[in-house]
Structures are given as C-alpha cells and as structure tokens.
C-alpha cells in the first residue's frame, strides 16, 4: 500500500514537474536578444568564406554575377567590392585597395534575434537566411546588421541578403561570386572538414586573417587575407564619389542611388 502510494506520488511529481517544465522550455529557448536555436541545413558542416585580398582586382564580376543569379533590384547589392585610394604609410605612394563585402554569416548574427517573426534564421551549417514568405518587411534586421549586408528588396518588399547561394551549394555548385571571381580570391568551404581548402588556408594563415568590426562580438565567418587595418572598422575616408555636385550645387547621383 505504502509502496503503491509512493510510486503514485512519484509518478505524479514527475508528471507535474514535466508539465511545468515543458512550456517553460519552449518559451525560454533564448533570452531577449540572444540567439535562438539554429534550424535546417547540414549540422555536420560550418560554411565560411575566405577572401584573399591580394588576388582581388576589383573587377566587380562577383557583384554582377550575384546580381544576375539572385535577381537583386538595381542599386542594392548582396555583394559589392568597395574601392579606395590609400596612401602607403611608409612611402606615401597612393595605391588602390579593394574590399569585397557580403554577409559575414556571423556565429553570433545580430540580425537573427531581432526578427519578430523568426523569418530570418541561422541554419545549422552557419548560413543565415530569410524566409521571404514569412518576412513582414519591418527592416529591423537591416538596422541590426553592422555590415550593411541586408536591404529591403523593392520587388518583394521583404528583407534580402547574401545566402552563400545555398541553392547552388545544395546542387553541388559554387556560389555565383566564387564561380565568377577571375582572380580566385574567394574561397568557400566547410570549416568542419579539415581537408577543405578553406580549413587548410585558415590553418596556414591563422595569424594574418582579419574580420570586419570584431569588437561588435558578432564573430564573422568571412575572413580576409591581406587586409589593411584601416578598413576593419568604418574607414576614416573622404567620400569622393558623393562629393560631385552639379552647377546648382545639387548632388549628382549615380544612376542607381535614387531609391
């Protein structure tokens, strides 16, 4: 009798404890503004990109091929190569510096926890994607990204960004920007595979690799080789392209900037 009662009470305690824990567990998947669990994608992989700036010639083939592949609206870019004139601190000579920019597929992506409808999420393979069917176009993620990697697509009125061309990766193809890079500057691969080219390059150049705005704590997964330190944060640069004014002192926009 006692034993039966004890067993019953034990079962009851387990049941009630379980019942109280289940909803708590689902509600408290993440604290406010912390990363929710990743979903989808291959959990065995961690995609990343390494950009060898020594090989980039600023031809914008990546920009154009990405635009064609992903049908981005004019004037908005999933990837683009910024171009700067810089002086050599030692010789004073001017040279050109190219900086390809794209989504950094951060390990701590600030764009993900802000999304109010879980339309933007990180896959288990590290790629950050947007479900355009669910996105409400609040642009909170656009504000949250410190890299300007996101924009509102004027055609779909939803958030848009680089996806490392997941649709191509799944088909065994390289992303459009990697495929079209004439200098072979962009290397994509799986960091979890020690035999991948990117893993080998990361191991070889570990001390020289740089990421953008590391102080933001986002842990970016686009690594730059041959990076000029002046461009890790917002460069203290003279924005010459925007300083061209017409005879009435109006700013002369280039053709895409009128959005």
């Amino acid at each position: 009798m006692d034993l039966a009662r004890r067993m019953f009470m034990g079962q009851l305690a387990r049941f009630t404890a379980g019942a109280s824990l289940v909803p708590l567990a689902t509600v408290a998947e993440a604290a406010i503004n912390e990363q929710p669990p990743r979903r989808g994608g291959d959990p065995a992989k961690r995609y990343a990109m390494l950009i060898d700036l020594r090989r980039c010639i600023g031809c914008q083939a990546c920009t154009v091929s990405c635009h064609l592949e992903n049908d981005a609206p004019l004037g908005k870019f999933r990837t683009i190569v910024s171009q700067y004139e810089v002086d050599d601190p030692e010789t004073g000579d001017m040279s050109t510096f190219f900086l390809p920019r794209l989504c950094n597929h951060c390990d701590n992506p600030p764009c993900v926890p802000v999304c109010p409808v879980q339309a933007t999420y990180q896959q288990e393979d590290g790629i950050v994607v947007v479900d355009a069917e669910r996105c409400v176009g609040c642009a909170y993620c656009v504000q949250a990204c410190p890299y300007d990697a996101r924009f509102i697509n004027d055609k779909t009125q939803t958030a848009d960004k680089c996806t490392f061309c997941t649709h191509r990766l799944e088909a065994g193809l390289l992303p459009a920007c990697v495929e079209s890079c004439v200098g072979g500057a962009r290397i994509i691969g799986d960091l979890n595979d020690p035999e991948s080219t990117i893993s080998k390059m990361v191991a070889e150049h570990h001390g020289e690799l740089k990421v953008l705005q590391p102080e933001k704590g986002t842990s970016p997964h686009v690594f730059y080789l041959g990076m000029d330190e002046r461009f890790i944060d917002r460069p203290e640069a003279f924005a010459s392209i925007w300083d061209i004014h017409g005879k009435d002192n109006e700013e002369l926009h280039y053709e895409f900037s009128g959005h």
């Binding site: 171009q83 700067y84 810089v86 656009v142 924005a239």
Partner: peptide, 18 residues
C-alpha cells in the same frame, strides 16, 4: 584616422525605417 583614404566606389545605403 588617415585623411589620405579616399572612397572611390561604394553604394550609399538607404534608410530602412521611414
């Protein structure tokens, strides 16, 4: 700070909240 950096080509990112 380096005044000798000149931005030649970069998109101008638009506002997202109106």
């Amino acid at each position: 700070m380096n005044s000798a950096v000149i931005e030649i080509l970069a998109p101008r990112y638009q506002i997202a909240w109106y």
